[in-house]
Design a protein around this nucleic acid. Structure first.
Lengths: 200, 200, 200, 200
DNA sequence: AATGAATGAGATTTCATTCAT
DNA sequence: AATGAATGAAATCTCATTCAT
């Protein structure tokens, strides 16, 4: 009658199933083109169940954003605070963001394509968190500039936007089944970034 | 009775008004969030008139794409075929695409955010034309690689995707009323691109 | 400059082309499913031209009805007033109506399927003319009854409805490219009618 | 609190109400002339409710067809498999189909007038079922022919089409408030059919 | 005689959400 | 925790007809 406190194997919970299908469908067809009906059918739950866990369709989209933001931020913090020279850490950070982006391409596609579909309040939340992320990345570049490792011909925030544009764009052309794996691509992108910054 | 041969000022034609409002509204709220009703009201025409000129809402979106594609392509062709060293021409091309992008930011926002909302057949058309554009840009980079002006550590097509990601992203942060004008920004972006390619 | 009074060959006139295409399209898709746009395109004329010759779409449908009514009536009159015994003339009339029906199957399909789509006033006109047609046919049967050639177990007007139901139905199953030609079928139908009426 | 196990009267369910009103309105004005708006107002339900139970307007029409097809088929099977001579059973079948047709005149009117408005796939389904029905009827005639009770001057399938044309046509002239009731009319029609088939 | 741009009403369908159970 | 019937507003698109030329 009672359930074991820690079942060894369970099929994913209702909210998890919804989140997974939402990510897949929103990336594939776009937030506005996915109806709640389709979504719950894909997740194998009922509408009522969905509205039990999420207050709205918008809420589901926001949940996807939170998952991405959390993951990216925690990884970047780890790298920035890790050891090594600034060029080395910037290279690692750039390479890592490429790798995690291609590993979670659906999330990225949603991230940039659907931000304007969140409610204004939640858009602000996401932008604020995103800004913190960019600032952390920028601080790394500024550190290199101060140390004279990087030139200062181009303002650091422009470099950051320049680089993250490239990242953002990955969802539009990178295919996991191609000949290029995430690590290689991360290497190339990090090399391009470092090359464009190197002093001299 | 007779019309002046060259009227100095005319109110824009119905399709032109529709195209202008569509561009503005699609960029601002997203294709799916703009209703035909809103659109025709903004353009000051009736729904019937709209459907007289455009077979569907999708058709309007496609018309926006065609306008952007034509403009970008013709400018690039002019630069590529112009005179000067390869580095010089690449710098000019990169700088120009930044400038025209920020001058037509609405179109750019639509371009990348709404491509998946076009009918599949039209998506193909747009992608094909876009590919031709990228290939022309890439041919310039390859020319520089063959001449030894650019290093070959990173494949040319990856460089192209890297750079156009940055362009694509402009719509997400650049504001015309900021302190940075298009020419300056074009200079920065072109410098970053050239720096990341320079041999040695 | 002037046109010859009797040109040897001309492409059909605008109203004729419209009438021909209307008949074909109304039979194929149903009056309500054929738009004026489709119709004028199929006829190779413009909308304005159509409205020059026909006051409305309904008017076109009515023109189709008039053509059918006129043809059927004139043929029946000729047969009824022709010579021969009553059984012979009824057989000829029955056989002929089958033949002309399968020769003009589109018209028949329209006749029975779209009558309720005519304006009420025109419906009355058609029904009145149709009634005259049925009455003429019935008079032939009644003549045979009076002469004792046909039995009177079933009222003549019921026989008429019975028979014309069969005619009406031809459009739902008869195919011109089948193995049965109109004359054969007319023979069968006339035989069935006569058999069901024969006295004794 | 508890519901009676067998409530004596309940207001018909939403889909039942819709089906009843659809039958009435489609017969009266034609499928294409009845808007969903009119329909749901007549049934006293909302549009949303209608689309909850029926996937389209077409679906409603199909539901009408299914009801008619089921009823006709089950009655015919019962008669064909019943006892008695073949002439007797054919007379009973013919008479019964007249009776049930005039008892459900709306359905019949819809049946023949609107078949071409169903989606192609559903038209096929209906035609297939209708063919099965005709074949059963034909098998009775063929049985009589083999036994020598009926002549073979006219092929059995033509007789079937001939007779069902008459049935089909009932909706165009029979009025329930006239002086002729369904049983009488059924008698007449069955007599005419048998007379036209009788050997000798 | 003929054009074709323009109208405006109305068509079917979709959808996020609510709520009694 | 979960159901699924029901809502009602809004969506895109169609269409017969008119009218200035």
């Amino acid at each position: 009658m009672t359930q074991p406190a820690e079942p060894k194997t369970v099929s994913p919970s209702v909210p998890d199933r919804l989140l997974a299908e939402a990510t897949r469908l929103f990336a594939q067809h776009g937030f506005d083109r996915v109806s709640v009906q389709e979504l719950v059918e894909a997740a194998g739950v009922t509408k009522g169940a969905m509205y039990h866990y999420f207050t709205s369709k918008d809420d589901l989209l926001f949940a996807v954003y939170q998952r991405v933001l959390d993951m990216q931020m925690s990884r970047l913090v780890q790298i920035v605070e890790g050891g090594g020279g600034v060029a080395e850490r910037l290279h690692a950070a750039a390479s890592d963001v490429v790798q995690t982006t291609v590993d979670n391409l659906d999330d990225t596609v949603i991230f940039f394509r659907s931000l304007h579909m969140l409610s204004p309040g939640r858009q602000s939340e996401v932008r604020k968190e995103r800004r913190r992320y960019h600032e952390l990345f920028r601080s790394l570049i500024e550190e290199g500039m101060r140390e004279g490792v990087f030139h200062e011909k181009v303002p650091a925030d422009i470099v950051v936007n320049y680089f993250f544009g490239s990242i953002h764009h990955l969802g539009m052309w990178y295919r996991a089944d191609g000949e290029l794996d995430g690590a290689q691509l991360g290497g190339y992108y990090a090399d391009l970034l470092l090359a464009s910054l190197r002093a001299g």
